[in-house]
């Protein structure tokens, strides 16, 4: 069962990347697969702050800590 939070984050990543692929495999490496680049990652951080009030500083996490949809969901959960 997918929670609201999960669905919202998936929608957000799809919206920012303009690519449905992100929704298909939640463990796919978004940077390796060219779904996100560094500027899109910043846009994601801004959106996470606006929509969930979760603030993650640009140097807070290593790329390996939020390179899949599931990891992004986890990082948001930890901070809510």
């Amino acid at each position: 069962m997918m929670t609201d939070l999960e669905q919202q984050i998936i929608d957000l990543v799809v919206d920012i990347s303009g690519d449905d692929e992100a929704a298909e495999d939640l463990d796919m490496d978004l940077f390796e697969e060219d779904i996100l680049d560094s500027i899109a990652a910043i846009e994601l951080l801004v959106a996470l702050k606006d929509e969930f009030g979760v603030s993650i500083a640009p140097t807070e996490l290593e790329r390996e800590e939020m390179n899949t949809v599931n990891k992004i969901i986890e990082r948001v959960r930890e901070r809510m």
Partner: peptide
């Protein structure tokens, strides 16, 4: 990244 964040 800071500039982009600001601009976005």
């Amino acid at each position: 990244m800071r500039f982009s964040q600001f601009a976005i």
